[in-house]
Nucleic acid binder design. Structure first.
Length: 214
DNA sequence: ATCGGGATCTTCT
DNA sequence: GAAGATCCCGATC
């Protein structure tokens, strides 16, 4: 469940191919579950950063907790792109948070990526912010910082088009995916009883209070 | 391990 | 003008 990659089985980065849009479930809740255990990859000048997605939240079209609930604004425009685009916003004036748009063009919905288990680029991240490995991307703000995701990535198409490999993309699972748990979402006040948060059970890189992670 | 307060600033009411 | 999809640190159990 929570097995760090041993040195002898280092990740082969060349196997991380971008998922196509057709491979992403067209339903927001299904996509939220699907993304658990898949890989988020960012090719940067400092090298390739990558992590297993271990915690997500769904924000639906008819959902008062969603940024898109009251229609398009300057901030949330990327939530209205067809599924597979990055929606990056600044939380509490400071922290970038990374989402994947999840519906058809014109409908506002997204999956918030809340936590990763880092599998590549840990040295780069640790040089910037010393921390236990499991803490590097535990929480949406830390995730974006660790992966060097900024507002400049807002609106990027994460899916491959032709042979082009996007700088930021989603890839398949690099090992077996553990059991997936569900809970209420974290840090919201509206629609606070809906079970729209998903996580890999037993993974210590998952954020939030322990009582939600069973 | 869990809880609570302060920082910080953009967005929308 | 208030609230907010958070983080960090210190206090306490």
């Amino acid at each position: 469940m929570d097995q760090p990659l041993a040195p002898h089985c280092a990740l082969d980065l060349s196997e991380l191919r971008p998922l196509s849009r057709a491979e992403l479930p067209a339903d927001t809740v299904e996509l939220s579950r699907f993304l658990i255990g898949r890989t988020l990859v960012h090719r940067t000048a400092q090298g390739t950063l990558a992590g297993r997605i271990v915690e997500t939240e769904a924000y639906l079209p008819d959902d008062a907790a969603s940024h898109a609930f009251r229609g398009p604004t300057k901030r949330n425009g990327s939530m209205f792109l067809r599924r597979g685009h990055a929606y990056v916003y600044i939380s509490y004036g400071v922290w970038p948070c990374m989402n994947v748009s999840s519906d058809e063009a014109g409908t506002g919905a997204a999956v918030l990526l809340r936590a990763l288990e880092i599998v590549s680029g840990a040295e780069t991240m640790l040089a910037e912010k010393p921390a236990p490995l499991r803490d590097l991307a535990r929480g949406p703000g830390r995730l974006a910082r660790a992966m060097r995701i900024t507002l400049g990535d807002d609106g990027l198409d994460l899916c491959a088009t032709g042979d082009a490999v996007p700088p930021l993309f989603l890839a398949g699972a690099i090992r077996q995916i553990g059991e997936i748990g569900a809970s209420v979402r974290i840090g919201i006040t509206k629609e606070a009883d809906r079970l729209l948060r998903f996580f890999e059970r037993g993974n210590s890189a998952v954020s939030g209070p322990g009582r939600l992670n069973r």
